[in-house]
Design a protein around this nucleic acid. Structure first.
Lengths: 354, 354
DNA sequence: TTGTACGCGTTATCAC
DNA sequence: GTGATAACGCGTACAA
């Protein structure tokens, strides 16, 4: 059904073919397709009918060649090993949020994952040289990733989903206030009477991890609780690190843990099951993210919710707005977080006792 | 540093500019870039120097326009909700395998996720109309997804990572023998003396899920064990479904569970912890996939390993080979599986007793 | 071995 | 309102 096109066998139709069939010129067809004015209703209808009939779609390469726009954006994940270390839904959720918007705004989405076997520089070059995208969303980059410098120098549009700690004046981002959110989470534990509060951190070379640790310290300081480095386990954003972190804490006298994300909290629960610690009786636990799994654990997880899919969606929207010139850099968007109180922090037990 | 290009301010360089700077014609530059013969070593060196100096990269849109190749492939995930239901690393691992090869073979990777809020048909149209890709890898599609019919009619190159159950003569795929693998897994349980073997299935509208159930039945039949539908819990490939499935089985008198993947097995373990069932003492458990998590559980999970990243990598390689005309459709690749015996099936306990 | 000239399918800029 | 025609940047027969 594709080739009523006797003149050009085996080739997709082009504007010229449609024009011939509709009895108009190529320019008119172009005008119809791009919804330009100055086409008589009658002509427009005729042309649209032919387009419909032939299922015609303009050749994007030809279009790109003249418009300099590809209608595609890229997602760059430099720190892939950390981002998808296995059991964490964060990455998938982010992708879902991003593609929801790119779909809706008629853009394609290119995926760039850094692999362990290609070095940082060749990865960067590949992205910088690729001209099939109008802009980039960068996720899970180390805070000092040189990629940013190059993107800025090349004048590329880009948005991150983490707080940048360099080039703030050039960097657009969508994130949450990790410092404040972590502080609130830890203050909640303090409010429940916990004093020996440990934390298992996320990757500290990613600003999400860094900031949540700062929030933890802020909360302790505000409450006049001395900082004890024995209660701080530097780790990474995944379940196994949570598991190992909990094992390290075992003999260190603590009564609560702030896990830098839910995957870590899951590992903690698992380790606690093995060692016979009860949550929240023996220690309280608070996570971060509020992924699906939080409600499927026993005990159900108290956690700081952040809107991950929305973060992706807003980043995509922002990026496309920048590309289309609707906004100027830098744009900074902070999405709200919310403490979701469930069983693992022991709040309800405390309530009941009161 | 991009614009030593006084004649064309604010524009990227093109072949003509490089040619001028190197004192040759445009075609010669083109020949150098495409590694064609019949260029004198001296000229080649001169041109390469200029290209290097300017950091020149040919415009891909212009290239695509004439070569009809985009050097990009797409990944299509129609059943996204099932594929990334949260806690399963399958999807991420597959993406990693695919992008490893696309990177290596200098192709870009486009991502197409179906969302709940766009209907199947508009999703399909979007993919079929997009001409920025030379071919597609389709993952996690329902066995009768009409997408396949349309791809074939449109003459598109595509590869699936599941056994197709229609259009076999047109469909290239890379997968494992799920029937045989599941059968082996269940036979292992039978060999350990288990007779009341339950299964919690994956999505039965995906051939992976369907085939693993068939393998389960085959094993029972071969051993003369009657099929008991009370022991078959139709579910989906995720942890929560495993958790719920286990709860359903609770009072049904079973001594083993074959979980259709590791995520399901994880849910089973969690439920068993809550209800006080011991694994493998009270029942044996075997999973499928051998994701990272299998070794991080207690008990460590006996599971049928399948090479997920390699599946993605081989699919990408195959697809690009088809695009480049190095192979003819249909190609069928089956990768090996391997039963990894750990603690959850109780094999070691049995051994010890012998 | 190198250069010329044409075509790829659009959009944009003119005339009419 | 509509239709020629010139870009856009590249590959490629063909000529030299």
């Amino acid at each position: 059904m594709n080739n009523h096109n006797s003149a050009r066998p085996n080739k997709a139709m082009n504007l010229e073919d449609i024009a011939a069939k509709a009895g108009v010129s190529r320019s008119t067809v172009s005008r119809v397709i791009n919804n330009e004015p100055y086409v008589s209703p009658k002509t427009r209808a005729k042309v649209e009918a032919v387009i419909q009939e032939e299922g015609f779609t303009p050749n994007p390469a030809a279009r790109t060649l003249v418009t300099q726009r590809t209608k595609a954006i890229g997602i760059v994940i430099p720190h892939i090993l950390n981002a998808i270390s296995g059991d964490d839904a964060y990455f998938s959720t982010l992708l879902r949020g991003i593609t929801e918007v790119t779909t809706q705004r008629d853009h394609a989405t290119l995926l760039w994952l850094e692999h362990t076997n290609d070095n940082e520089e060749s990865f960067r070059r590949r992205i910088l040289q690729n001209r099939m995208m109008d802009g980039l969303i960068v996720a899970s980059a180390a805070t000092n990733d040189p990629l940013f410098k190059h993107l800025i120098e090349a004048g590329r549009h880009f948005v991150t989903v983490e707080r940048p700690n360099q080039f703030q004046e050039y960097t657009n981002y969508v994130t949450v206030n990790n410092v404040a959110a972590a502080q609130t989470a830890v203050e909640h534990l303090i409010g429940l009477g916990r004093r020996r509060i440990a934390t298992i951190t996320g990757n500290l070379n990613i600003s999400d991890g860094e900031d949540r640790l700062i929030g933890y310290r802020n909360a302790l300081e505000a409450a006049g609780i001395p900082y004890d480095e024995n209660l701080v386990i530097p780790a990474q954003f995944n379940r196994n690190q949570g598991y190992l972190g909990m094992k390290q804490l075992l003999n260190r006298n603590f009564d609560a843990i702030f896990a830098a994300n839910d995957a870590i909290a899951l590992g903690v629960i698992q380790a606690a099951n093995e060692t016979g610690h009860r949550i929240p009786e023996d220690f309280a636990l608070v996570g971060f993210d509020d992924m699906n799994i939080a409600t499927q654990l026993k005990p159900q997880l108290t956690t700081m919710r952040q809107p991950v899919a929305e973060k992706g969606a807003r980043a995509a929207d922002l990026l496309i707005d920048l590309i289309e010139g609707k906004l100027e850099s830098p744009q900074r968007i902070l999405l709200p977080t919310e403490l979701i109180i469930r069983a693992s922090c022991g709040a309800k037990a405390v309530e009941a006792r009161e």
